[in-house]
Write a protein that binds this DNA or RNA. Structure first.
Lengths: 115, 115
DNA sequence: TGAATATATGAACAGCTGTTCATATATTAA
DNA sequence: TTAATATATGAACAGCTGTTCATATATTCA
């Protein structure tokens, strides 16, 4: 660990640090991004973006086990990225809100821009 | 692996699947979100959002080693989330573009909404 | 040139993630 | 109630991540 370089202005840095979201928010954000960091879960979101679906349908489209889909959905649900409703014997999942759509659209634009 | 539930309409699902971004884009998105999934890297972005900074300054603010900051920045740089310019002996990092700002702002709104 | 400062990189290790398998629970229909 | 369908959950294992330590490279200044 070494000391300040000449650019460092501790007082200014302190002020900038205060505008960084509190540790709890940062950790929650990290958890959200962490949930968005899996191919399978991203595909789930792009599918749900088009149509509310039950686990069966998702399992059919993605080529993973029912268990994997269910685990993935749980992760997304816990962070309120998707929500659930019951329809008879089916559990229907859907995108939670606008934020989620914006997040994945922004990211898609970003990666497509340099493709 | 079991078969279709009664809700499954293979033809419709096939169409929906086609609208999911191609595997390469999905993987790149996953990589971007993966980069955003660390407390340290998120803090870096919220700091750079306010002011372009050299590694020293970031090291000073966050409580991690210079090595950790540098590794974190490399990850962000490789995904074009931050960019670099040289200023004499300093390497100045800055947020790459609007997308990045929107991504972290969207996510912050999302987590703060339910706090 | 040599010393000091600023940054990058590689190795290595502890801890976390995503998948599958096996099984449990919940709902419907017979 | 029983069988069948739909979904959830726990264990376990392979693979990945982030940090630190040690060291290398690059730039400035004397």
């Amino acid at each position: 660990m070494h000391d300040n370089c000449e650019r460092v202005d501790s007082i200014q840095l302190e002020k900038l640090l205060q505008k960084v979201p509190d540790p709890e928010s940062i950790t929650r954000m990290a958890a959200v991004f962490q949930a968005l960091q899996s191919d399978t879960r991203l595909k789930i979101l792009f599918l749900l973006k088009q149509k509310d679906m039950c686990v069966c349908e998702l399992e059919q489209v993605l080529s993973v086990t029912q268990s994997a889909v269910s685990h993935g959905l749980r992760t997304l649900r816990q962070l309120d990225l998707v929500r659930v409703r019951r329809e008879g014997k089916f559990t229907i999942y859907y995108i939670a809100d606008k934020h989620v759509r914006t997040l994945i659209e922004m990211c898609l634009e970003h990666v497509e821009e340099k493709a």
